[in-house]
Design a protein around this nucleic acid. Sequence first.
DNA 1: GTTTGTCATGAAAAGCTTTTCACAACCATT
DNA 2: AATGGTTGTGAAAAGCTTTTCATGACAAAC
Lengths: 338, 338
Amino acid sequence: MKSTIKDVARMANVSISTVSRVLNNPDLVVKDKRDKVLQAVLELNYSPNALAQGLIHKRTKTLGVLIPDISNLFYAEVIKGMEDAAHECGNNLIICNTDNNQQRRLSSLKVLSEKQIDGIVFTSEPIFPDSYEVFKRLNIPIVLAATHSLEYDFPSVKVDDEQAAYDATEYLIKKGHTMIGMISGSMLDPISGLPRIQGFLRALRTHGIEFVPESRIEYGNYLFKDSYKAMKALHTKFPEMTAVFATSDERALAAISYLHEHNVKIPDEVSVIGFDNTRMAGMCYPKLTTVAQPLYEMGSQAIRMLDRLINGVVLDEKRFYMNHWIQERDSVKEINRF
Amino acid sequence: MKSTIKDVARMANVSISTVSRVLNNPDLVVKDKRDKVLQAVLELNYSPNALAQGLIHKRTKTLGVLIPDISNLFYAEVIKGMEDAAHECGNNLIICNTDNNQQRRLSSLKVLSEKQIDGIVFTSEPIFPDSYEVFKRLNIPIVLAATHSLEYDFPSVKVDDEQAAYDATEYLIKKGHTMIGMISGSMLDPISGLPRIQGFLRALRTHGIEFVPESRIEYGNYLFKDSYKAMKALHTKFPEMTAVFATSDERALAAISYLHEHNVKIPDEVSVIGFDNTRMAGMCYPKLTTVAQPLYEMGSQAIRMLDRLINGVVLDEKRFYMNHWIQERDSVKEINRF
DNA sequence: GTTTGTCATGAAAAGCTTTTCACAACCATT
DNA sequence: AATGGTTGTGAAAAGCTTTTCATGACAAAC
C-alpha cells in the first residue's frame, strides 16, 4: 500500500499541513519538526499523489501527442525530441496513434481531455473544420508539429515545404540535371503534398526548364510498396530521366530499389534525392542525399512552445519555420550538361 | 472553463449523486430525470474529471512504458502494437525514454509512480539488483518486453534469442555456407548479446563446423557506424567468409553498405542475414533476409499481459516466448558446397 | 504593562467524483 | 390497518493534497 501524507504526519507527530509545508515550503517550519518529517518521508518511502495535486492545481504536467502512424520512421526522431524536451521541463507525454482515422482521433482527444492534460501537440495532419471545433472546445494550448494551418491561428512548427522542395530541385538543376522526375504525395494534401509540388514547379520555371507535369510527376501514398510502383510508372513514361526527386526518404528508398533491380546505376545513370533525412538515409546504398528536416529539433521545439503557452507566455512568432538543408551524401551526381 | 458534475446537477435540477448514477448506472434513475441529465451533459459538454475518478478508484487507466532509445527503429512497431492494444483495453501510454541511463530511469519511474499509473512495461534492458529494488517498491504490475529476467520472476514477452540465432545460423549452413562471420553485440549483454552468440556457436558445433571465435566474431554496439567498422574488421580478418550473421537489421545494413562499397556482390559473393525484421529490411537493396521478431505483436502482447495482471488475472505462463521465423528475402544465396 | 507584530502550527475548505447510508414514498402482503 | 419490502433520491464521507484562515505563543515597542 502506498503511504499518504497522513501516514507521514502521524509518524512525525505533526499535522498534515506541516508535512505539506516541509515538502513545498521548507523554511516555514522549524528545523526539528522538519527533520522529523523528512525522516518519516524517507522511512515510509512517501511521494505525493499527483492526482490529488492535479485536482488542486489544475495542472497535470502531462501533455498529449497525436500522431497519425507511430510506426512511420519519420516520428522516431521527432518523438525523441519531444520526450527529451518534455522531460526537461518536467512533463510527461501521452502518445496516441490516430491511425489517420477521425473516430480514433476524437476518442483519443476525449480521454486526453478527461485526464486533464495541460496541452496537445498535433502532428502532420491538416486541420479540418470539425477537428477545429473539437480543439476549440478543449480549450487548452495546442501546437501543431510538421503541419500548420492558414485558416486557423494555431501555433505551429514545421519546415517551409515549398521552399525546401524548391531547394531540392534547384540543387539537382545546379548539378546539371534537366530531365527530372518527381514522386510525390497527393496534390490534395495541403501540408506535404501540394507545397512540395509547387516548389518543384517553381524551381523548374525559374530555371527555364520546360515541363509537362502529367508525364513527369507520379503521385502515390507514402508507403514503400506504392512508391515502388510509382517509380516504375515514372521510369516507364520518362525513361530519359536523369534525376528523381522523391518527397520522402521512404519514397526515395523505393526508387533506389527499383533502379537497382533494373540495373540502373545510382547515381551514375539516375540521381535520387529524398526528403526528411530519417536515420535510414544514412543506412542505405548509396547513402541518400536528401532534404533534411531537423526532426529531433522540431519535436523538442514543439514541446517547448507548448510549455511556454501553458505557462502563459505569448509567443513572438506563431508560425515557426525551422531551417531545412540539403544533406549531401552519395545518391546525386553532377552531370555534364552538354 | 470545464464544467463539472455540479454544474450538470444544477442545470438538471437534481443532486450530484443522480448525475453520477445516470452516467454510471443509468437504470437506477427514472426516465425523465435521466433525460434531463443527459440533456444537461450535452449542453454543457460535460465529461468527468479522470483525476477525481482515479483518486477514488485507485485506477488511472494509464500505463508507463520505459524504452532505452525511442529513436531506434526497432521500437517503432513495438510501440504501435502497444498503443493499439492499450487503446483497445481503454488505457493510455506514457512513454519514457531512459537513454540507457540509470538516473533518468529512476526519475521517470518516480513520476510515473506519482502519477499513479496502473502498470509498467519495461523494455530491452536487463534487470539489475538496484532496478529490481525500485520495481518491488513500486508495488504495481510490471511486464518485461524484449527482455526477461532469470533471477527475478517478472513476467516477460520476448523471442528465444538463443534459438533464433541458432536458426539463423543453421539456415545459412543449410544454404551451403560454412565460412560464416558474425557481427554481434557484447558478450556481456545477457539479453541480446550472449544468447545470440551461444546460438550461433551451437549451430556451428551441431553441424560440425570448426571454428575459432576470435577470428570470426566481431563485437560492437548497435549503431550503424560502429557496425560498419565491425564489418570492416571482420572482412579483413576473415576474407574467405561467404556469409555474415548480423544480429540486428541495423548491423546488417552496415554490413551491406560495406560490401557494396567494396564491390562485393550481395548475395552472390557474400550473403547477409539480419535480425529483427524492422521495416527497413524490406526497403534496402538487396532486400534483407532476416530473423523476424513479431515486433508489433510483442508490443500488443506485453500490454495485454499487463492489463490482465492489473485486473488480477493470474498468467498461465510467466515467461512468454513469441515465435520467430526466418523472413526470406534477397540477401542470402544458396551456394554450392563443393 | 498593554499593545502590536511576527512566527509556527493546526483545522478546515476546496478541488471533483463515486459510493454508502439514510430517508421517504409507494406498493403489496397479512 | 399495520407491517415489510422496493424504489428513487439526496446528503455526506472518502480519496489525497494544497492553501487559507485562525489561533496561540512569544518578542518587541510604546
